[in-house]
Computed example of a mutant assay.
Amino acid sequence: MSQGNILIVEDDRDIREGVRILLESEGYQVDEAENGREGLEKVNTATDLVILDIMMPGISGIKTCEELRKTSNVPVLFLTAKSQESDKLIGLMAGGDDYLPKPFSYTELLGRVKALIRRYQTYQGKQSLDIKKDEYIECGDLKISTRYNEVYRGGQEISLSDIEYRILLLLMQHRGKIFSAQNIYESVWNEPYYYTNSNTVMVHIRKLRVAVEPTPEKPQYIKTIWGKGYRFENPIPED
């Protein structure tokens, strides 16, 4: 039985082949694309993860991810030679879920692949056909499923990435509690926290506010507690 369906979008044939062989040996079903345009054509509802190179001819990985996010919230793992923090933030702002600079170890790649697919399959409900539709948390005009990635604002469904959904769920499940960047990172990514990871958390919080806040620049739900972290609050009704 397949462990999941992965699409590799990478213009370097040797890297594509090496990653494909590794993932297939672990039981994954793997498809390949040598550029962004081909990748966008091949991704579908059965895809559980996209491994995406940034530096490609034609459509860059950043642009490919932006286009993909218009129709899908499938996890995206950027695989690229760029390793500066600014490049990582650009990738995350474009809709990426994780980032692995080249050269990389196959052990680290496999660990990230397994974590992203496990979270996606669990919270998308792919393995939970018996989920009850009434398992929600509501606050103000927000409503979130506690079991899979389904979020509503004012009765309208909004699209969140897997990471954004898990951050929002964590905060809404513990309204009023302050979560530091380290708390959020270790709870959502399930990885050890390093100082530079605070920027990763900050980017996802910013994107989450754009998605759920009526006025992102003046958030009423996801508040920043300076020097401490972030807290989800019940909005104060207007008179």
Results as ranks from 00 to 15, higher is better:
Lys114Pro: 06
Glu66Ile: 06
Leu89Ala: 11
Thr107Pro: 00
Thr122Glu: 10
Glu67Arg: 12
Gly95Ala: 08
Ala46Ile: 03
Thr71Glu: 14
Ile54Arg: 02
Arg112Leu: 06
Val113Asn: 08
Ser128Lys: 14
Ser72Tyr: 10
Ala46His: 11
Gly61Ser: 08
Arg69His: 03
Gly95Trp: 10
Leu109Trp: 00
Asp87Tyr: 07
Gly58Asp: 05
Asp31Ser: 15
Val76Ile: 15
Met93Asn: 13
Glu32Ile: 12
Lys102Met: 10
Thr64Leu: 08
Ser86Val: 09
Leu79His: 09
Glu41Gly: 08
Ile131Ser: 13
Ala94Ser: 15
Pro75Arg: 09
Gly91Gln: 13
Lys102Asn: 01
Ser105Trp: 03
Gln127Tyr: 04
Gln127Asp: 09
Gly96Pro: 08
Thr71Phe: 13
Leu77Ala: 04
Leu68Asp: 03
Leu100Ile: 01
Val76Arg: 12
Arg69Asn: 03
Lys82Cys: 09
Leu77Gln: 02
Lys114Ser: 01
Met93Cys: 06
Val76Leu: 10
Lys42Gln: 10
Ser86His: 10
Val43Tyr: 02
Asp87Val: 00
Met56Ala: 05
Tyr120Ile: 01
Leu79Arg: 04
Val74Pro: 05
Ser128Ile: 02
Val76Pro: 05
Asp31Tyr: 11
Gly36Cys: 12
Leu49Gly: 08
Leu79Gly: 02
Ile62Asp: 03
Lys82Leu: 15
Gln29Pro: 00
Ile54Cys: 04
Pro103Leu: 08
Gly58Ile: 06
Ile131Thr: 02
Gly91Tyr: 00
Lys88Cys: 07
Gly61Tyr: 05
Asn73Phe: 13
Ala33Asn: 06
Thr107Lys: 15
Glu66Met: 13
Pro103Trp: 10
Asn73Ala: 10
Arg119Tyr: 11
Asp97Glu: 12
Arg112Tyr: 04
